[in-house]
Design a protein around this nucleic acid. Structure first.
Lengths: 218, 218
DNA sequence: GGCTGGTTCGAACGTTCGTTCGGATTCTAG
DNA sequence: CTAGAATCCGAACGAACGTTCGAACCAGCC
């Protein structure tokens, strides 16, 4: 696929902008900061975007698009709800770890967009949330022990996952795969006790699952 | 206790500022916004604080102080780790729900402070996190099934709890007490399977616990 | 009445912000 | 080689920002 010089440079600008937005937040980043970091003149930036707000939108929208694309691809040909859940978590976390800046911006600057741009990203986020909720519902229907509210569980799962930008170091000792394993264990154990509780079976299931979930990074 | 006119007005300014910071973020809130919302002139605000940054600091520090004070008071005379955990979660969530704006600012604008002010709040946050971690460790030592990493579990718990500013409505149908119940169930079930798994015992324990945890709001 | 110390504010300061504009430079197709 | 398009940028715009200053105000006490 041919990628034009224009698109390449835009992508570079978006990556750099995302890094700075993640470091010091959208509102306290100036176009001059981005100009300095990209070595593109202040006026030159406006050849690649209409406004600072569009930069934020493009970062968020591209990021979401890529997460969704990978997820749908991974979920094809999978039926078992628990496997779906595991794939959902692994996909979310591995993408998060590989694109820490963009995902932090996506989680942290959700309400910095206004009007149509905000509505557009919000709709995507809603669909993503609904998909998670649907998977959780399927998982819940496998067992009779439904003590935790579905809505609470859905947002708790997103809280667990999205909070990692506050502490997780992708270069550190704990790999993404183990992180996903721990969080899945933690969530599923409380959400549907019994499904993942037998240690041996658990380990086996998770190891088998890694066939599906490896190769997500990069 | 005598509260001076000065302190009363400062508190009012802080409450209002917290509300606006929560609505549109610290960096995109101007002193003129706060002036407008409080009916205190722009210059008048500076009679009650040295700078906009100090406003943010006072909000965060007061908020943290009150959470810690309540927590320590609640934790006195309690030994059972599971009860401690339950109290910790209930205290955190009920305070969060009763002070949504301040707690959102505390969670969301953690890195908006610089220098000493940032260091001061960070230290408090560290102590709070360490306390949670210690409680979790005590809980973990009650059982032999220690499959989830302690660090991951600690941050997952905070993620679950702090994420609520993205979705929870304190005026909605779901009460804080039930929310805390669901999240405790969810977390503990995955973290220490077996401790809370028998439905009847669970319900009884939680109902008994409500003796300790009622009266946190307001 | 006058005096004092806390409170209030209109007006302005210097700075930085997002954005624009006209023209210079570089690339590309014929 | 050349024309036209794409890319780039120095300089400037008006607006908004956090903060300051000096003067006005007001309560309580002599």
């Amino acid at each position: 696929m041919q990628v034009s010089r224009h698109d390449q440079k835009l992508e570079f600008i978006l990556r750099t902008a995302a890094r700075i937005f993640a470091e010091k937040s959208y509102h306290s980043t100036s176009m001059r900061d981005i100009s300095r970091a990209t070595n593109v003149s202040l006026a030159g930036l406006y050849h690649y975007c209409r406004s600072k707000e569009e930069l934020l939108f493009l970062i968020q929208d591209n990021c979401f698009g890529r997460v969704l694309e990978r997820l749908e691809q991974q979920l094809q040909q999978v039926d078992a709800p628990v496997v779906k859940l595991r794939i959902f978590i692994e996909n979310h976390l591995s993408f998060f770890a590989a694109n820490m800046a963009e995902m932090k911006v996506l989680s942290h600057e959700a309400e910095s967009l206004r009007g149509d741009l905000h509505a557009h990203v919000s709709t995507r986020k809603d669909n993503y949330t609904k998909l998670a909720r649907k998977i959780l519902q399927e998982v819940q229907e496998l067992t009779e022990n439904r003590v935790v509210d579905l809505t609470v569980a859905t947002y708790a799962l997103f809280g667990m996952m999205n909070w990692i930008y506050n502490w997780y170091d992708p270069q550190g000792k704990l790999g993404v795969h183990e992180l996903a394993q721990h969080l899945t264990q933690l969530f599923l154990g409380g959400f549907s006790p019994g499904l993942l509780l037998e240690p041996v079976t658990t380990t086996m299931r998770i190891e088998n699952l890694s066939i599906w979930t490896h190769g997500l990074n990069g």
